[in-house]
Amino acid sequence: MEPGGPLMANFLQQVVSGLATGGIYGSLALALVLIYRATRVINFAQGEMGMFATFIALWLIESGWPYWGAFFATLAIAFVGGVVVERVVIRPVERAPAVTVVIITIGLLIGLNGAAFWIWGGETRAFPSAFSTRAIHVGGVAFSIQDLGVIGVSLAAVGLLYVFFRFTKLGLGLRAAALNPEASRLVGVRVGWMLALGWGFASVLGALSGMMVAPLVFLDPNMMRAVLLYALAAAILGGLDSPIGAVVGGLVLGVGLNLISTYVDFIGDQLKLPVAFAVILAVLLVKPTGLFGRTTVRRV
């Protein structure tokens, strides 16, 4: 007899698979937060950028690359892609109102989605996973190795980013440029390029979440639509300003939604999204800048 009985085992399994999807939401949410901090804009194309990168990864794998080779090559391509997008279409509207920039990212969303349909077609494709789908048993609870692997990769990525931002000079420059562009420019930080690098890192995180989610839901041009919505929810929940908030928000959302749709019959899969957003609206009303967001005090 396992500890706590089958109910407890099922509960733990749901928590772990919730953490895995939560890690995926969290990575994309972190990408959104990085761009929000750098350019004060929500990048609605973040999910589609990840989807496009995942198609490139599949193309590399199908032309004979080993999985991890294709994985890191895709991250590099995604980085360059993110930088190029910032330089070509975002920089010209830097001084325009936020709505204008939002419209540009919506244009990117529509365009990248169409391009994927055009190049690779609309049918769903299987995407290989780096991890086996077997389960390991710990004290009577079966954990899928894939779930654990996804959690590991998400945490590693977040950890690496933290180290980069916290302990390198370039990371310091990126943070400075986001926090106070004028002052940074005065002390010699090349703010324009820092913003472009921020887009590059965000694009890498998007690609990462795309490649992690693809084995679970199959790859097609609309794969990231739902993931983007949950990532937005996670980012709001944690506070658009806060990288830690994004990750925590993603994990909380992943686990919470998994438990709700398993145990509350009325909600099931159908009302998952509305419930997610209702919770977030409620959080916003109590704490308008999210759980970890800073309340800004403006000078008049």
Binding site: L108, G111, N113, G114, A115, F117, W118
Partner: peptide
Amino acid sequence: PGAPSVAYA
């Protein structure tokens, strides 16, 4: 399929 969206974007 997809091409009109690209043109639109």
